[in-house]
């Protein structure tokens, strides 16, 4: 039943995103990963070969394996050399990838983990919020973006494997993470630190634009959305939606749930778990608890189908 509701992940597992870098903050780790996987397999084969020789080998070979010298070589000297090389590589890379304060003219976005969605705030150079959004991040290709990661409740972890490693969102702290996408497209992510309840259904999407489309997206966000669907807007006000949600330019200023000012332009619903269209919008409003059990939004099954349709139309109009 739930499959028919259209639940689908924004994160695609093939090709494995850890091995499929979309930018310079993931690319060096892909190389490291392949080196580790191949190197590890070779070492495993060598050790298994040693075990095989010990069990079935020729007596002369076995005698060579059977002494303190073999233990020193196999157990100390060999790992010592390999590990030192790896350590130096790893440390260099750690230093390169660790994000420090903002570079000049760099785009900054504050992302706050909430149970079980993501609050997104685009910042200007002074750190003031210019655009509010939720559950997806729009970036221009080829430019690095600095993410300020925080939490509003419990520990979450921000992870978009194509673009960078993960970074925890910890109450009382702000952690920095730098990402960059070099080709346009949508990159999926998912909360990686267990945060209770529907932790499994806390997805995220990063949308990378060419410079032109990014400029268009930005311009679209700054203009207040036209209230086309009047009846939907009215229903939004009277049904209590505004207690939890904000829509810029209207009276709706609730802070508990995701900001809906631009919900019509989002790729997904429910934090990366549903495609966004009229039908899924209606389904989500009517009964989000079936789609994402345990999430904080109550169901609105009491609304008549035509009311749901009107609300959905209003949501769709918010670009």
């Amino acid at each position: 039943m739930r499959v028919e509701a259209g639940l689908t992940s924004v994160l695609s597992g093939w090709p494995p995103p850890v091995l499929d870098a979309g930018g310079p903050f993931a690319q060096p780790v892909v190389l490291l990963t392949w080196a580790l996987l191949i190197g590890g397999t070779i070492v495993l084969i060598v050790v298994l070969a040693a075990l095989a020789v010990a069990l079935w080998g020729k007596p002369s070979l076995r005698r060579r394996l059977g002494g303190d010298r073999a233990i020193w070589i196999g157990g100390v000297a060999f790992p010592g050399v390999v590990l030192t090389a790896l350590l130096i590589w790893g440390l260099r890379l750690t230093g390169d990838l660790q994000a420090t304060g903002p570079r000049a003219d760099e785009m900054r976005v504050r992302i706050t983990g909430e149970m079980w969605w993501w609050r997104v705030a685009y910042l200007d150079a002074a750190g003031r919020t210019v655009i509010r959004d939720a559950n997806e991040l729009h970036i221009p290709v080829g430019k690095s973006v600095l993410l300020e990661l925080a939490s509003a409740d419990v520990i979450h972890s921000f992870w978009v494997p194509n673009l960078a490693g993960k970074m925890d969102m910890i109450p009382g702290r702000t952690n920095l993470l730098r990402i960059q996408a070099d080709r346009p497209g949508t990159y999926g992510g998912q909360c990686a630190e267990y945060c209770g309840g529907p932790h499994a259904l806390m997805g995220f999407a990063v949308v990378a634009h060419t410079p032109e489309t990014f400029a268009r997206w930005q311009a679209g966000r700054r203009a207040p959305p036209p209230p086309e669907a009047q009846r939907g807007a009215e229903l939004f006000r009277t049904s209590g939606c505004a207690a939890c949600h904000t829509i810029a330019g209207t009276e709706a200023n609730g802070l508990a749930g995701p900001d809906l000012s631009h919900v019509g332009s989002r790729r997904t619903l429910g934090a990366g778990i549903l495609p966004n269209n009229r039908g899924t919008l209606m389904g989500w409003i009517a009964d989000s608890q079936t789609l994402k059990p345990g999430n904080r939004m109550p169901g609105y099954k009491q609304l008549a189908p035509e009311d749901l349709a009107a609300l959905a139309a209003y949501m769709e109009s918010l670009k």
Binding site: A26, V29, T33, P161, Y194
Partner: peptide
């Protein structure tokens, strides 16, 4: 055990751990 030990060395490398931690 050797297999698990080798992946253990892998996750001891911070950049690799950033990717596979909690997966």
């Amino acid at each position: 055990f050797v297999t698990g030990g080798l992946t253990g060395v892998m996750v001891a490398l911070v950049p690799f751990d950033w990717q596979v931690h909690d997966t």
